[in-house]
Amino acid sequence: MITAEGITVAYGRRRVLDGVSLSLARGETVGLRGPSGAGKSTLLRVLALLHRPAAGTVSIDGTAITGTRYTVPAAVRTRIGVLFQSPRAAADPRLSLADIIAEPLRVARRSDISARVADLADTVGLTADLLSRRPHAVSDGQLQRACLARAFAHTPDYLLCDEATTMLDAATQALIATVITDYQQRHNAGVLIVTHDPALMTRWADRTLDLADLPATAR
C-alpha cells in the first residue's frame, strides 16, 4: 500500500495541494480526476517521490519515505513506475527506443539486458524494427509504448499514469489500457490513473476519486 497523508504543495504563494490524502493498494486501479490545474499531476509526482511536498508524508507499506528524487534509495524508487503524459518529453531524443527501455536495466547492471528489452518490447507490442529507431522517427503511440516498457523494466509494484493516453488515438489508448490491465493482473500491481476522460475512467478504474473531495485523512 502506498499512502500519501496531508500533502501540501505550493508553487511560490499559490497553494496547489492543501493537506490532501489518498492511498493506493496493490491490485486495485484508482482513477483520479479533477479540473486542469487542480494539482493532479503534482500529487502524482509527490507519490512517485519526484517532488518534495511542503508538508505531508508518503509511505510505502507503512514505512514513511524521507527525501525525494536522488535521496530516495534506488530500490525504493524503482518500486513505483511512472508513465508521463507526453512521450516526446519523457524520452531522451538522443536515444533509440531500445536504449530508452534498457536505461533502468543498465542502471541496475542487469546481465540479461537485451533479452529483457526484447521481452518488454513484446509485452507492449513494439516490433523489433522499431527498437533501433529514435523518438523522432516513431509515432507518439509507439513512443508511449516504449515509455510503458521502460516503466515496467523493474516490475514495479505500483504504476502511476499521468494522463498517459490523452495524446493518443483511440486504438493506442485501448492497447495501452489492455497492456496495463494485463500487467496489473499478473503482478498484482496498484495502478493510479489520472485522466480527464470520464468514459475511460469508469471503464478502467475500480474506484474514482475527485481531487477536490479528497479529505485530509487517508481513505
Binding site: T78, A89, H154
Partner: peptide, 26 residues
C-alpha cells in the same frame, strides 16, 4: 525539469548517471 530526467530518476538512476548520460550529451 524535463520528464525524461524524472523518468531516469524513477528508473533508479543516480546523480552521476543522469549527469553523464542525459545532461552532458545535451
Amino acid at each position: 525539469t524535463r520528464p525524461f530526467i524524472d523518468a531516469a530518476i524513477s528508473g533508479g538512476a543516480g546523480r552521476l548517471r543522469v549527469l553523464t548520460r542525459h545532461l552532458l550529451p545535451h
